[in-house]
Design a protein around this nucleic acid. Structure first.
Lengths: 114, 114
DNA sequence: TTTTCATATGAATATGTACTCATATGTTCA
DNA sequence: TGAACATATGAGTACATATTCATATGAAAA
């Protein structure tokens, strides 16, 4: 068996503080979206300006299809939104959370390297 | 062909603002670690107190081996650290970044549901 | 030293997922 | 209406990875 010693008190305390499984899963799902280089690059590309799909594809040197698939994931998570102008569809960040979440990650990386 | 219209100026501008590939990959790798329910639960469990491996396993209802594998990933990323006390090894968060990164995610989720 | 306990770890498997390819949808212009 | 363009999407494939199982490591107690 793996454990013998007792920690029921500790477990009860921590269990009480732990959010619901559903919330923790949602949180993991959110970060899962940030955990892909292509999606990070797409989001970063939209930091300053809206861009159309083919511009993002050209910028990142990837196919239109690949970018489109990733944009769908970002859109389903409400991280980006789009508008149509004729044949072209322009994507932009849907709110400032993307910026602050990415900024927070950078901070950790920077302090890591010191 | 996918694109016909011109956006060289935009691409040059955005390309200039984009961080290096290496940095963007590091960022994605960091978030990848947060993008797993088990690891999120482990980190959350360590919010208030240090815990030994078997306590975490019992808390989450998972095997000691599974938890140990995930703790290694967290430790390699400098997100948790440990200390030995006899046969037992206690893990704790290595700094406050974990807390603030998770808090940031929560904020996004909460505003999402409004 | 041998046994027991706590944890770590390598290999195998099963599941998830990013990209490709082909094609569908929707818009504009001739 | 038909052709060209921009984007979306379903199926298939290749690769990554979380967990399990068996076993190794390392420390304390008998």
């Amino acid at each position: 068996m793996a454990h013998d010693h007792d920690h029921k008190e500790l477990l009860d305390k921590v269990r009480f503080e732990l959010p619901t499984d559903e919330l923790l899963c949602d949180l993991a799902d959110l970060y899962k979206i940030f955990g892909d280089t292509t999606r990070i690059k797409i989001m970063y590309s939209l930091f300053e300006e809206e861009m159309c799909v083919c511009a993002i594809a050209e910028l990142l040197g990837m196919t239109q299809s690949a970018i489109s698939h990733q944009l769908k994931i970002l859109k389903d998570a409400n991280l980006v939104a789009n508008r149509r102008d004729g044949k072209t569809i322009y994507y932009h960040l849907s709110d400032d959370h993307v910026r602050s979440i990415i900024a927070q990650g950078f901070e950790h990386l920077v302090e890591e390297q010191e």
